[in-house]
Simulated assay, not measured.
Amino acid sequence: MGRIVYVHGQFVPEEEARIGLFDRGFLFGDAVYEVTAVIAGRMIDNDLHLARLERSLGELDIRLSLSRADIEAVQAGLIGRNALSDGVVYLQVSRGEADRDFFYPGAMEPKLIGFTQAKTLTGTKAQAEGIAVDLQPDPRWHRRDIKTTMLLGQVMAKQAARGRGFADVWLVEDGVVTEGASSTAHIVTHDGRILTRAASEATLPGCTQRALARLCERHGLRIEERAFTPKEAREAAEAFQTSASSLVTPVVRIGDQAVGDGRPGPMTRKLQALYLEAAGVPA
């Protein structure tokens, strides 16, 4: 017996889980998803994740009948049934099932699935030492602000980056960095400003990014929402990326150029500590 997963209203062993052949998430990528970090059995920034899920559903006019409290109960059920201490809980909502057609029926029953993944989220080698990221042209569709399951562009970019010896990849469009393939990109200028992209249709609004912005405001750190170029990123004092599954991870090399002195910088270390403190993780 493996994990217990959630499929269309039931908790079942993963070996017994099934989705329909004509599920539009499977056929068209007509689905959205969210991933919430779990540390010591507790969900982190889940209010931000569920708010983003609701927004994504609204943008696609997928009308899930479950309330936020219902969804939280599913998440808690998955965490409890799988005795998850550290890792993530994944949710996915598709528009539903109908015979394959680009046009979908007016009344459909959305399908919710969920599962957990056990992972080490804190104290990782990447967080301690930093990572190198590749730079590649952004291959994705226009509406990146909707967290859909259409991730083939990201898969291709990450796979190509790994083949070139990089841990991850930042995407570039119109001469500026959009975001990481599964993260939000940040740089720190030499005068101590933290730069990251503002919310728009070009990028996914990061939940960890938003939580970190709140902490910066609370602690008097200067954060500026604007696009930056690959040249600015390479010449920055520091760089880092954020996501639910990697928290705050230093970026110490971009392409073939070291960032700063090639080691995680003091601002990144400060932000790592502030985020873990806010998440209730012991130092």
Rank of each mutant, 00 (worst) to 15 (best):
R42K: 14
D23G: 06
H8D: 13
A160T: 11
L112V: 07
R55K: 15
G255Q: 04
L204V: 05
V89R: 02
I187D: 02
G41Q: 11
T203P: 04
D61N: 14
Q159G: 05
Q257T: 14
Q127G: 10
Q10N: 12
A161K: 04
T36C: 12
R18N: 09
S65W: 06
Q272E: 06
A37S: 14
T122V: 15
A283H: 08
R193M: 08
D191C: 09
E109H: 07
A132M: 07
D138V: 08
E129K: 13
L121V: 03
V35I: 07
S67H: 07
Q154Y: 09
A202K: 13
F11M: 06
V5Y: 07
K111F: 06
G29P: 10
L212M: 14
A236M: 09
V133I: 09
V133C: 07
L171E: 02
R162M: 12
E97S: 02
I71F: 06
L151E: 09
A227P: 07
R24G: 01
Q209S: 14
G175I: 09
V251N: 04
G20V: 00
D47R: 14
Q241Y: 00
L204Q: 04
S246Q: 14
G77F: 10
G192I: 03
F115Q: 11
R218Q: 15
V93D: 03
V32C: 06
K119L: 14
E72A: 11
G20K: 11
A279I: 00
V88H: 07
S183H: 01
K125D: 14
E179N: 00
Q127K: 07
A37N: 10
S65I: 01
R162W: 12
K158I: 10
A227C: 06
E97Q: 05
E34H: 12
E224H: 12
A126H: 14
A126S: 15
A69N: 12
M150W: 15
I113D: 03
H49G: 05
L271P: 02
S67F: 08
T124S: 12
E225A: 15
R197W: 02
M108V: 01
R144E: 10
K231D: 13
